[in-house]
Design a protein around this nucleic acid. Structure first.
Length: 389
RNA sequence: GAGGCAUUAGUUUAGUGGUAAAACUUCGAUCUGUGGCAUCGACAUCACCGGUUCAACUCCGGUAUGCCUCC
């Protein structure tokens, strides 16, 4: 079980400061949840997570089911022992893979709509009844293929819950369909109704003391989002995820939060699924979000992009360590950063590692980026505490 | 000295009588509940000098350089 304690509610916005208590420790909220898809923060040993301010991580049902299989994780004593991380853990339900391996793969697009020349047009939309090419979505669940070996597999609400119970995370998510950003209203409505039926099934089949979060879908449509928030709120989950496509830009995303957040039980934590640009973080928090997971700090690190302090407080810059200028740069990665990497390594060396294809480049930048993001969120918490947000 | 073959992007190679293709490198950009450590751009007076032709990187001759064979 979890317990969510709100320490302070902002008078200026919907932001709040809280503590989320789990069987594996406490999380100060708002908090970033780094992504450990395959029970690993890529390139980083679990021991390092604490020193970079990580309080909770999220792993993935679909991927762990494929490899190594939940039985193996259970046999090892559950996901915490399996990966030697004794802090709080969430598992995503596999609902995102319905999208990422389905329409996302077909159209080569992410869940925030962007213009991809030649792939989609402005007015293209996915109509009700359409299926992705390789994934088949039915009333009972979803027929997937394994990205590892192409093998077919089926995951529905019951299966997802069962797998997540075997994995043993502190917080688990209901199985949903993450809808594509080009879904028509009719598609989104039909999908939402099915996601709601699945949410009920997840709730009924859930037997353990793990906290099961319901997920609010509804795409970019106001009435559907409100309907979703009301419905999910009515099922009595101990927390909520807000997922699916979140419009075309930050403003749309904020609109969606404005529609949904007020309809959710204010005493329960709200998790914004998959969102975490530094650019949006204050906005997201001021619209009432307590937790959010994002691959940006870790994924960008492996693409040689480091995030560093900008001039002011809560300002930042992006550094592409591949750029020529850094090979001769004797400055630390981020002179305002106190992390292990910034206090010990110079840009010239990191740039060299990047150019030489040394694996440690990814590791060191991942370490720094997570430190930076965690510190960034800590500054936001401080701002709420001081009444500035 | 004679003969043969070769010379195309930084590198390694395609290719065609109508101003060039790929991989890697280099330069830059992108990435939001992570199938891929990826994706998308940029970068060449086709060794040099002549000739044939409406048109030559392509055909012909010469020069240079390299490799091979023979004397």
């Amino acid at each position: 079980m979890i317990e969510f304690k709100i320490l302070k509610t902002s008078k200026k916005s919907w932001a709040r400061l809280g503590v989320l208590k789990t069987p594996h420790g406490e999380v100060e909220t708002p908090s970033l949840v780094p992504v450990a898809t395959q029970a690993a923060i890529k390139t980083l040993p679990s021991e390092y997570l604490t020193q970079i301010g990580t309080q909770i991580i999220i792993s993935n049902t679909f991927h762990l089911h494929l490899k190594p299989g939940e039985a193996i994780v259970k046999r090892a004593g559950g996901i915490h022992k399996f990966m030697n991380w004794n802090g709080p853990v969430m598992t995503d339900s596999g609902g995102f893979q319905v999208f990422s391996l389905g329409f996302g793969r077909d159209l080569d697009l992410g869940k925030i709509k962007k213009f991809f020349p030649g792939k989609i047009t402005d007015n293209q939309s996915i109509e009700k009844g359409t299926q992705p090419k390789k994934v088949k979505i039915t009333e009972e669940g979803v027929h997937f293929f394994s990205p590892v070996d192409g093998k077919k597999l089926f995951i529905g609400p019951k299966e997802s819950i069962k797998i997540q119970e075997s994995l043993g995370a502190d917080i688990i998510f209901a199985f949903d369909e993450c809808t594509p950003p080009v879904a028509s209203r009719e598609y989104a409505k039909a999908s939402l109704e099915r996601t709601h039926r699945w949410a009920k099934i997840c709730n009924q089949n859930h037997k353990t003391k793990q906290a099961l979060f319901g997920i609010v879908q509804g795409s970019r449509f106001k009435d559907l989002r409100k309907e979703a928030a009301n419905f999910i709120n009515g099922l009595g989950f101990p927390g909520y995820g807000i997922g699916g496509d979140l419009g075309d830009n930050t403003k749309d995303m904020m609109d969606i939060l404005k529609w949904t957040v007020p309809l959710l039980d204010k005493n329960k934590p709200r998790h914004l699924l998959g969102i975490g640009y530094l650019r949006d973080m204050e906005d997201v928090v001021s619209h009432g979000i307590d937790l959010f997971d994002c691959v940006v700090p870790t994924l960008f690190a492996r693409r040689n992009v480091a995030f560093i302090h900008g001039k002011g407080e809560l300002s930042w810059e992006k550094l592409n360590l591949r750029n020529t200028q850094f090979i001769k740069d004797l400055k630390p990665l981020d002179k305002k950063c106190i992390c292990f990497v910034c206090t010990n390594y110079k840009r010239t060396y990191l740039a060299h590692l990047v150019r030489s294809g040394e694996i440690s480049a990814m590791s060191l930048v991942t370490y720094h980026n997570l430190h930076f993001f965690n510190e960034f969120v800590a500054s936001i918490r401080k701002k709420i505490k001081q009444g500035k947000l």
